[in-house]
Design a protein around this nucleic acid. Structure first.
Length: 477
RNA sequence: GCGGCCAUGGUGUAGCGGUUAGCACAAAAGGUUGUGGACCUUUCGGUGAGGGUUCAACUCCCUCUGGCCGCCCCA
């Protein structure tokens, strides 16, 4: 019958003329129609599956982020992935690239414009205001790990759905906040064993930025011809961004460009200097990067990014963040200083793979239960449950019939013992326990099996874990 | 959003205007019916979708879908 299908597919080839109107898949109702839609379903553009084989990285990184956040006093929070579009327009800034062209927005059935969050900070700020967190001890320190969305051209390691670890300290403007946030971040990368460089800069605040902007504009106006096309445009829109252009000419120009550090107002300068002092005292290595400018409008004063150590231009920023003292006010709250960071999970995992960061071993099953015949299968399933409840990592494949494939699987899983229950054992009320390494086996009373297995597992030196095995069928870990 | 490259079984790949579309890995079954990762045999499974050119298209052209690279921007 498999052949018949094949023929059916090939037969009605040449019908020619009268090209049938394109049929929408949903319109095909005739089940008997010989030609079926061959198109397999697939993920939509910019979205991807993270398969089990990649999960160890995600688990490890997630655990590392959560753990370090909690040791620094951050509390977990979960926020909606969808917010009103206006939230991001107000928070991120209308003229930013994110809002101008990267928002994943759509209208719901009621006509309201919604947006899949492109970054975590706006939602954090919204939650802070909505739940009246001003009335709790300040600062409020929150972290989350979750998916973010940007409607952009997908590329390797840059999907439309990606994941970020976000940390925010809201309600405290002291420079120690900025410093500890960076300290925490650098400690994380140290834990992961990823060599990175912390890039730090300040972009002033409402007081001093306009003045610096003017100075900068003046400087570049005299060199307009040397700028690239994009930068000419940037000059009008957001002159600060000219500073981090990657074009040769622009990079040469910026070397002599006026730097913000020389044009800071006194409070901003003091904040910056004090913060650097803390970083120095804490032995946090950093690079003063006067050209670091971030793409979101809400930043004030401190901005920072973490680049891979071998990355000279910030092509692969693994994390970034900064202070946003005006954001809460922008959203209608009373003046509330805040500072936060975001870490790209995908980019970090890519780096981890590149650097071959060792992962903690995945626990693998210790015991495999093999069975032969229907009554044995039932008994094996019971035993599986009992072992599982006794905290033994046990695996089995009850759908297999022959003993050989089950032994093969046990071997592949790398278990230390295989319990074999066959017809003979059912009659005798016994089981066979096979030591997979020694290749020897003994028969035991079924009733004592749990105790014997636990005893055997505890007695001997645990086997060194190797790579994560692929587990089929029933497995408990 | 702009420019470019690409698309062959689950994965990695070979090839050609007319071939039974080849190979490797993976998967499944078997190798005297109760025992191991090796080996052997067999099986499963593919030209992304739609249209066009042609006697003939996996191959050439167009559209769509998706991926990748550069730009933009970021994480």
């Amino acid at each position: 019958m498999e052949k018949k299908e094949k023929q059916d597919k090939m037969k009605p080839k040449k019908v020619k003329h009268v090209a049938p109107a394109l049929t929408h898949p949903a319109d095909i109702t005739d089940v008997t129609a010989p030609v079926r839609n061959k198109r397999l379903p697939q993920t939509v553009r910019g979205f991807r599956d993270i398969l089990p084989e990649e999960q160890p990285y995600w688990r490890y990184l997630t655990a590392a982020c959560e753990q370090i956040a909690e040791t620094y006093g951050f509390q977990p929070i979960t926020l909606p992935m969808v917010e009103a579009t206006s939230l991001f327009e107000r928070a991120v800034g209308k003229v930013t690239d994110i809002v101008e062209k990267e928002m994943f927005s759509f209208a719901d059935q009621g006509g309201e414009s919604l947006t899949l969050r492109p970054e975590p900070t706006a939602g954090m700020a919204r939650a802070y205001l909505q739940h009246g967190l001003v009335n709790q001890p300040q600062p409020v320190k929150w972290y989350l790990i979750g998916p973010m969305f940007r409607y952009q051209r997908p590329q390797y390691g840059r999907q439309r759905q990606f994941h970020q670890w976000g940390c925010e300290i809201i309600g405290e403007g002291h420079p120690t906040m900025d410093a500890t946030l960076m300290l925490m971040l650098m400690n994380l990368f140290q834990t992961l064993g990823l060599p990175v460089a912390l890039q730090v800069n300040t972009i002033g605040d409402k007081e001093c930025r306009p003045a610096y902007r003017r100075v900068l504009l003046e400087y570049y106006r005299n060199h307009r011809k040397e700028l690239c096309e994009d930068c000419e445009r940037r000059l009008a829109k957001n002159p600060l961004r000219v500073l981090d252009c990657k074009e040769e000419g622009c990079r040469a120009l910026r070397a002599n460009a006026p730097q913000f550090v020389d044009h800071l107002c006194t409070p901003c300068r003091e904040h910056f200097m004090e913060m650097l002092e803390y970083l120095d005292d804490l032995d946090v290595p950093y690079v003063l990067n006067p050209h670091l400018v971030r793409g979101l409008d809400y930043y004030t004063r401190t901005v920072f990014e973490v680049w891979a150590a071998d990355d000279e231009e910030g092509k692969t920023a693994l994390a970034g963040g900064g202070r946003y003292d005006d954001l809460i006010t922008e959203l209608g709250g009373r003046p509330t200083p805040a500072v936060g960071l975001g870490l790209g999970m995908e980019t970090t995992i890519l780096k981890m793979k590149e650097r071959e960061v060792p992962l903690p071993p995945t626990p693998r099953p210790e015991v495999f239960i093999a069975q032969l015949s229907q009554p044995a299968r039932k008994k094996a399933m019971q035993l599986f449950e009992e072992l599982r409840k006794s905290d033994v990592r046990v695996a089995a494949n009850f759908s297999k019939d022959g003993l050989k494939p089950q032994m093969e699987m046990a071997a592949r899983l790398g278990v230390r013992y295989t319990i074999i229950i066959g017809q003979k054992e059912i009659v005798d009320h016994t089981v066979i326990i096979r030591d997979m390494e020694a290749g020897m086996q003994e028969t035991f009373d079924f009733k004592k099996i749990i105790g014997i297995v636990k005893h055997k597992l505890e007695e001997e030196i645990p086997v060194v874990h190797t790579e994560a095995p692929i587990l089929h069928d029933a497995t408990s870990t």
